[in-house]
Simulated assay, not measured.
Amino acid sequence: MVTDTFLVIGAGSIGKRHAGNLAALGEKVELIPYRSFDHAAIGKRNDVAGMVIATATPIRLDLITLCAEKGWPFYVEKPLAWTTEQVDALYDAAAPVAHRSVIGLMMRYHPAIRTLAARDLSNIYSFAFEIGHDVRQWRANWSFADSYASDAEGGGVLLDLCHELDMVHALFPDAAVGTAQSLDHADFPRVDFATRVNLSAPLGTVAMDYLSPVSIRNGSLRGREQVIDLDLLHPTLRIQDGDGDRTQDFTFERNDMFLGLIADFVALSKGAAPSDNPLFPRFDRMRGSCDLVASAWQARQFVGQVGVDFAAKP
């Protein structure tokens, strides 16, 4: 009896995380570095249950096309693309398996975001989300200059930390990009180190940066009948409304979000029902979020530079 295998393409930190989570779920998994990927040999296999695409963003069209041709569901890491033309091409290629596939927007499994999504937000007139962290602190022995993040095409903070834009889309599906201002670096022209995106319907901002000496990830929503503040790192949700002023604390591990999404992907790939998460990022339902990210990237206007010494430790 042949046991179907989940292929994880891309053996960086996120690929290793997905492979470990699949194994923890009892699935057979094969982790393949992209530089070792043999398209012809993989295309001849008949034991593939699905593919996790954890490669750099610019090289995913070939993998998604292969999955569509073979009828394999896929889990593709975020961001999907950085231009609307690329989003078009990827969705066209994915069409045969889009309803059985997902995109790795795991913040939709954060309990605070799920709690927010369950509330009536129709009276919210403004919002703000912010995420920041010194990129030099990310991983030991990691070089920004040698990473995907330093590439003007497919790198930069807006794409790297695009979960916040997806959260906006999950909570306010009609939100649209207005303007975006960015700061780059003399050594990395047109790579955004800090970006602020202005949106409408409702009025809002999303700010992200590679610079903050203290990790921050928070949000605020202002409505005619409620005031909401959230800290996604600790995490807590404070709500002030007609029922008073209360704070809700959440206890969970960061990997719970990755594990929840990969478990839903496994279920979907096997024809079973995923969990009851209404924010489940099934690929065919995520076009609006992918377009929002691409629109924000294309709207960037570089208005200054940052002076970060990448040779120095933070």
Rank of each mutant, 00 (worst) to 15 (best):
T3Y: 07
D4I: 01
F6H: 08
F6P: 01
V8R: 06
V8S: 08
V8Q: 05
I9A: 09
G12Q: 13
S13C: 01
H18K: 12
N21Q: 12
L22C: 06
L31P: 08
A41L: 09
A41S: 11
I42Q: 12
I42F: 12
I42P: 03
G43K: 13
N46Q: 14
V48N: 06
M51D: 04
M51I: 13
V52S: 07
T55N: 12
A56R: 15
A56D: 15
A56C: 13
T57Y: 13
I59N: 15
R60L: 15
R60D: 14
L61C: 04
L61V: 02
D62L: 14
L63Q: 14
L66V: 14
C67D: 08
K70R: 15
G71M: 11
P73A: 15
P73I: 13
P79N: 11
E85V: 05
Q86T: 04
V87N: 08
A89C: 10
A95S: 11
P96D: 14
V97L: 07
V97K: 02
S101I: 02
V102E: 02
I103V: 13
G104K: 04
M106D: 01
M106C: 02
M107K: 05
M107V: 04
R108Q: 09
P111K: 09
A112C: 11
T115A: 07
R119N: 00
L121N: 02
S122E: 08
F127N: 01
F127E: 00
E130V: 10
V135K: 04
R139Q: 14
N141I: 09
S143A: 10
F144R: 07
S150C: 14
D151P: 03
G154L: 14
V157Q: 00
L158C: 09
D160Y: 14
E164A: 14
L165V: 13
V168M: 07
G178Y: 08
S182Y: 02
D184W: 11
D184L: 03
D184C: 06
H185E: 05
A186E: 12
D187R: 08
D187V: 02
D187F: 07
R190W: 04
R190F: 07
A194M: 00
A194C: 00
A194I: 00
T195Y: 07
T195W: 09
R196E: 00
V197G: 03
N198K: 06
N198Q: 13
N198L: 13
P202A: 04
M208V: 15
D209Y: 03
L211N: 00
S212W: 00
S212G: 00
V214C: 00
I216S: 10
N218L: 07
Q226G: 04
V227H: 15
D229N: 09
D231F: 04
D231T: 06
P235G: 12
R238S: 09
R238N: 08
R246H: 12
D249R: 14
D249W: 05
F250C: 10
T251L: 09
T251D: 11
E253Q: 13
N255M: 04
F258G: 09
G271D: 06
P274A: 03
N277C: 03
L279A: 06
F280K: 10
P281D: 03
F283S: 10
D284G: 06
G288Q: 10
D291F: 03
V293T: 10
V293W: 10
A294P: 07
A294H: 11
A294Y: 12
S295K: 14
A296Y: 10
A296L: 11
W297N: 13
W297K: 14
F302D: 08
V303W: 01
G304D: 09
G304M: 03
Q305L: 01
Q305W: 01
K313Q: 10
P314E: 08
